[in-house]
Design a protein around this nucleic acid. Structure first.
Length: 394
DNA sequence: TTGGAGTCAATAGG
DNA sequence: CCTATTGACTCCAA
């Protein structure tokens, strides 16, 4: 019987009577590629029979990534805790990564072992009854350290607390302060050490052109990439990176929809949000209206109109070329793991609440699917013969 | 080599 | 401050 244990209950996780302080967590920019698959982060993972996160990840039962992120976001915002702090001290990730993860978690079954780690950590964190408290402590400590650094010197060492939280004291002119100061990488051109690259920022039109090119050919050949690069006046590597990133992000969008669909699939009769109100669109593919992506390299491939209007190829493949996503199977139930992950109740409010079609504008689903289809086609072609795509009749 | 998965880190907005 | 976006990088598997 399709029934989800959407019960209530609370975190019946035993509180670790371990007051281990894990301060020095903020990993510094230690470049040296440690590459120690051990436990890089002094994470707040209490005892746990000395299991490494990796081991836990390996044994972890399927987790509801969407529910987890939802809960984490809730807790963080409710307590005014930022992603940076959470990411650096709990997940060992940077703010940007956390933002991404929380905003678009991929479904558990599509995550690699590595990719599951953050979610296991989040779940563990959620299970910790003192999670918020600990984070707030760290926040305080950071602030304190900051203040200290701010106006270095100024003997304000001990005996502080009691109010006086520097509200004003816009210490601007520090007398004997002139020594060290982070030397900013000014437009310093000649520098042996590290010449910081300016970070490429593609102009909207360039992105448009690239998206158009993507619609024509999600997997451009080196030759095509070369042409695109020269036509758009971009470095070849930039174009390559763009395609890598775009494909990857399109794929992720598909996952998101998959999750949301799954969320509303279960018992709720409401189900399939019959959305697709009209043309809204725009979410990841800002391209104009739609034009079902189809890479039909008519003849010699390569079209020049990159910067102009794309050749509208009407027609509409409406195939549900989904990946063989097999998941919702039985729950692996595991001993210790069970006590750690089990009782996911607190985080299972998904189905119910999470459903509110919060997708007021995405009708881009079609294009996503098209991209997905192209992905598959690409693979098929590659599998068949490693040559340029021929004319596969469909 | 190519493509995918994860991330980082600069940067644009609030 | 904080969060979201996104080009570039690192690892890894095929």
């Amino acid at each position: 019987a399709p029934e989800s244990p959407l019960s209530s209950a609370e975190e019946s996780v035993k509180s670790q009577q371990e007051e281990q302080m894990c301060q020095a967590s903020i990993q510094e920019p230690s470049e040296t590629s440690e590459s120690q698959p051990g436990t890089p982060l002094p994470l707040p993972l209490p005892g746990h029979a000395g299991l490494s996160i990796q081991e836990m990840v390996a044994m972890s039962p399927e987790l509801d990534t969407y529910a987890i992120t939802k809960k984490v976001k809730e807790v963080l915002t409710d307590n005014n805790l930022g992603q940076r702090l959470f990411g650096e001290s709990i997940l060992g990730l940077t703010q940007g990564s956390v933002s991404d993860l929380l905003a678009r978690p991929k479904p558990w079954h599509k995550l690699s072992l590595k990719g599951r780690e953050p979610f296991v950590r989040m779940q563990l964190w959620l299970n910790d009854p003192r999670n918020v408290e600990k984070l707030m402590d760290m926040k305080r400590m950071e602030k304190k350290a900051y203040m200290k650094r701010r106006h270095s010197s100024i003997g304000e060492s001990h005996s502080l607390e009691s109010g006086l939280s520097g509200s004003d004291l816009t210490q601007s002119a520090s007398p004997q302060n002139l020594s060290q100061q982070q030397q900013q990488q000014q437009p310093q051109q000649q520098q042996q050490p590290h010449l910081k690259k300016p970070r490429v920022v593609l102009a909207p039109e360039e992105k448009e052109a690239l998206k158009r090119a993507y619609q024509q050919k999600p997997y451009p050949s080196p030759k095509t990439i070369e042409e695109l690069a020269s036509q758009l006046n971009l470095k070849t590597s930039t174009v390559i990176n763009w395609f890598h990133n775009y494909r990857s992000r399109i794929r992720r969008e598909l996952f998101i929809e998959e999750i949301q669909a799954a969320a509303s699939e279960g018992g709720s009769p409401s189900a399939r949000p019959g959305k697709s109100g009209g043309e809204g669109d725009n979410s990841c593919d800002g391209t104009e209206s739609d034009s079902t992506a189809e890479g039909r390299p008519s003849g010699s491939e390569e079209r020049k109109g990159l910067l102009e209007s794309p050749n509208r190829s009407q027609r509409d493949e409406e195939g549900e070329a989904e990946f063989p996503s097999a998941s919702g199977t039985s729950r692996p139930r595991g001993g210790i793991i069970d006590s750690l992950f089990g009782i996911p109740e607190s985080v299972s409010t998904a189905t119910a609440t999470a459903t509110p079609c919060r997708n007021p504008k995405d009708s881009s689903l079609r294009k996503k699917k098209a991209a997905n289809l192209n992905n598959i086609i690409h693979r098929l072609e590659k599998a068949a013969n490693r040559d340029e795509p021929h004319e596969w009749e469909f």
